[in-house]
Amino acid sequence: MTEIFAPARLGPITLRNRVIKAATFEGRTPDALVTDDLIAFHREVAAGGVGMTTVAYCAVAPGGRTDRHQIWMRPEAVPGLRELTDAVHAEGAAASAQLGHAGPVANAASNRLPALAPSRMFSPLGMRPMRVPRIDEIAEVIAAHANAARLAEQSGFDAVEIHFGHNYLTSSFLSPLLNRRKDRYGGSPENRARLAREIALAVREAVGDRLAVIAKLNMEDGIRGGLTVPESLRVAAWLESDGALDALELTAGSSLLNPMLLFHGAAPRREFAKVLPTPARLGFRLMGRLFLKEYPYQEAYLLERAQQFRRELTMPLILLGGITNLDTMNRALAEGFDFVAMGRALLREPNLLRRIESDSATRSACVHCNECMPTIYTGTRCVYRLATPTT
């Protein structure tokens, strides 16, 4: 029917089509290990027709989780992850593990471990100062990414997606606002990009050409003094020249300071206030309007920014943000993007891609209310979803 449904190469692997289920933290790992619920979540999406589903979030270290319930990559996690990838493969899809270190976004109180930040910062999540890693500790973070990638390979994943976005640790190093270091990891754009480049190279060395390696890169942080598109373009060019990555997935926004730049649509302030613990709830009610800004929703809302990267780079790019129907997917391919990534639309309808393949006029039922966002604490889901068959 269209090129979007044709098989496509992503580095060393072939996907059955050009649609990737984007990383959306599932909130289904209460003991930081795979559950039947998590397996069922990804099996349903795979059965719904995507080329690849992304398991999020797989932290590279226990202190790199946003809270203690998230998976962190260790030998004990491998059997469950292998069961998950087997289930996805049985439905004809590939599986990707999103790897990263939450850094400033980590909840130190929940993890009972210090949160890391490139420079001195106070954590509103852990209500304590963050730890500024020494050079040797940065080396440990890089090695942890490589080790996590090896464990992902043992778990049967076809790809890994390294998280360089949303002011998680690597993204915070890229930010001139958050990174005020005076050593070789701070100051100039080249120095601030060093961590991202070294992690990408370490992951590639760990998995060779056996797995696809993707990086999720912020095009901009959307905050005054943060990473901008021109600087991100330089980072992307360096990553491309290093040759460690098979593709970049382009994103935007800061989980610390401006998360809605990634999502667009309604800002679910009241819903977030209901699920937060009492002290945080009060602060959120006072400051929530500043934290959760509103950006009007439109299809392919990150396309204009992403087009600048497409013009400058030759490597494969994945377009994210407002991909809900065949017209938008075809537009992305026509603009030179190699793959598209879908998130919220698949929370509402895991079988959406099958429906589009059967009827090109199909439109997503997602209304971009973003009320799925607060459900990360109880199992990420669309609060309006009706039970629908996946085939």
Results as ranks from 00 to 15, higher is better:
residue 376 I to S: 03
residue 129 P to R: 00
residue 36 D to V: 05
residue 123 S to C: 10
residue 56 A to D: 06
residue 213 V to C: 11
residue 192 R to Q: 12
residue 189 P to D: 14
residue 54 T to R: 00
residue 275 V to L: 07
residue 239 L to I: 12
residue 323 I to F: 02
residue 108 A to Q: 11
residue 174 L to V: 12
residue 13 I to Q: 10
residue 89 H to Q: 02
residue 169 L to G: 07
residue 371 E to T: 09
residue 335 E to K: 12
residue 152 A to D: 00
residue 146 A to S: 13
residue 372 C to S: 06
residue 285 R to I: 04
residue 73 M to E: 07
residue 199 I to M: 06
residue 297 Y to M: 03
residue 88 V to K: 13
residue 46 A to L: 04
residue 365 A to L: 15
residue 16 R to Y: 04
residue 198 E to Y: 07
residue 203 V to W: 11
residue 256 L to S: 02
residue 16 R to P: 09
residue 325 N to K: 13
residue 121 M to F: 07
residue 242 D to M: 01
residue 268 P to Y: 01
residue 17 N to M: 05
residue 66 T to C: 09
residue 314 T to L: 03
residue 131 R to N: 00
residue 244 A to L: 06
residue 63 G to N: 15
residue 158 D to M: 06
residue 269 R to C: 02
residue 314 T to P: 01
residue 284 F to I: 06
residue 143 A to E: 15
residue 25 F to A: 02
residue 384 Y to P: 00
residue 316 P to A: 09
residue 96 S to L: 07
residue 75 P to Y: 14
residue 307 Q to H: 00
residue 319 L to N: 04
residue 73 M to T: 08
residue 313 L to Y: 13
residue 163 H to S: 04
residue 377 Y to C: 01
residue 154 Q to K: 15
residue 156 G to T: 08
residue 275 V to P: 02
residue 299 E to A: 15
residue 296 P to T: 12
residue 131 R to V: 04
residue 143 A to L: 08
residue 217 L to N: 04
residue 96 S to K: 06
residue 351 N to V: 00
residue 338 D to W: 00
residue 254 S to L: 07
residue 369 C to A: 07
residue 14 T to Y: 00
residue 163 H to G: 01
residue 46 A to G: 03
residue 55 V to W: 02
residue 88 V to Q: 08
residue 62 P to D: 12
residue 244 A to K: 03
residue 44 E to K: 14
residue 156 G to V: 09
residue 331 R to K: 14
residue 197 R to T: 13
residue 210 R to Y: 05
residue 149 A to E: 11
residue 313 L to F: 13
residue 37 D to A: 15
residue 21 K to V: 14
residue 158 D to S: 15
residue 339 F to D: 05
residue 325 N to F: 08
residue 283 G to P: 06
residue 362 T to R: 11
residue 35 T to L: 11
residue 389 P to T: 13
residue 132 V to H: 02
residue 249 E to A: 14
residue 43 R to M: 03
residue 10 L to M: 10
residue 373 M to I: 15
residue 237 A to Q: 15
residue 318 I to M: 10
residue 346 L to Q: 07
residue 167 N to R: 05
residue 142 I to D: 00
residue 137 E to A: 04
residue 123 S to N: 07
residue 244 A to S: 11
residue 118 P to E: 01
residue 1 M to Q: 12
residue 82 R to K: 15
residue 59 A to Q: 04
residue 341 A to M: 02
residue 256 L to R: 05
residue 215 A to W: 09
residue 267 A to D: 04
residue 201 L to K: 15
residue 250 L to M: 10
residue 377 Y to T: 14
residue 4 I to G: 01
residue 61 A to Q: 13
